[in-house]
Amino acid sequence: MLDVSGLDLHYGDAQALAGVSLHAQAREIVVIVGANGAGKSSLIRTIHGMHRPSAGRITFEGIDIAGQPSHQVVERGIGQVAEGRQVFPNLSVLENLEMGAAPRRARAQEKATLERVFGLFPRLAERRRQAAGTLSGGEQQMLAIGRCLMGQPKLIMLDEPSLGLSPAMTQEVFRVVRQLHADGLTILLVEQNVMASLKLANRAYVLENGRIVLSGTGPELLDNDGVRQAYLGL
């Protein structure tokens, strides 16, 4: 479904990604782990059209999307939940969700999708009139995910969704990820919570200094000594 091959990204002279290749098949959960500054967010942002790669191909459902503007990438069905819960703090929960229905494809079913999102996150339904900035961190993350779903993505990329959340809220986020997967979405998950995310993963990659250094199924990486030492402290 998503195929990335030989992706290079430079910020001026600094190389952020070097020959990154990965792929995700339909209805898979693909996890990318790596330390801070390894290039995880750069990778997601490049796939999402926010950076123009200096080399490499990104194809989604057979179409090359490398360098296309974000709104067209979203239109094709790739949604992004950016790092740090980027909700619009002064807009209401409902308005935030409506923003997510920007793709033309998603507008016709806006009402139905909204009901689905409220079904998934009853808290958001309760607080629909409230300014998003007044929600708790966990609720804001739910809102960010909900907004992404409003665009009816086929593939959803989540960048550190559990960052800064309480353990209980983190569990809730992982429950939602499993739920979305069960609903038929393909998921590309970037996480610092390596243990929990690798347990979910159909396929996983380890990113170090902008390069993929290891890949395999979730269980394979969980058994890998290097991963256990570097990321799990075992």
Binding site: H48, M50, P69, S70, H71, V73, V74, E75, G79, Q80, V81, A82, Q86, V87, F88, M99, G100, A102, P103, R147, C148, G151
Partner: peptide
Amino acid sequence: EAAQAAGIAV
């Protein structure tokens, strides 16, 4: 940036 991520043609 969030608008861009949400698919709005900024």
